[in-house]
């Protein structure tokens, strides 16, 4: 377990960066999904639930 202290910052920063980018891949679609659902709900409320299958 990382006995040579010299390399530890490099190794951990790499794994940390990997964790951050992976977390972003999970979180970003979740946030976007929430936002989309809210937007769609709002639009439906404004247009009284009209839909338009011809012109998406």
């Amino acid at each position: 377990m990382i006995p040579e202290f010299d390399y530890a910052p490099y190794v951990w920063s790499c794994y940390g960066l990997f964790a951050i980018i992976v977390a972003w891949q999970i979180v970003q679609p979740m946030i976007q999904h929430r936002r989309l659902q809210a937007e769609i709900r709002e639009e439906r409320a404004l247009t009284a639930g009209e839909y338009d299958d011809a012109n998406p």
């Binding site: 679609p29 999904h33 989309l36 659902q37 769609i40 439906r44 839909y51 338009d52 299958d53 998406p56």
Partner: peptide, 20 residues
């Protein structure tokens, strides 16, 4: 999934399936 929801936001199926 998000992209198709975004593009089809005015279609009928979104109302039924997307938990809106």
């Amino acid at each position: 999934r998000n992209e198709i929801l975004d593009q089809d936001r005015r279609r009928r199926w979104v109302l039924e399936h997307a938990g809106v």
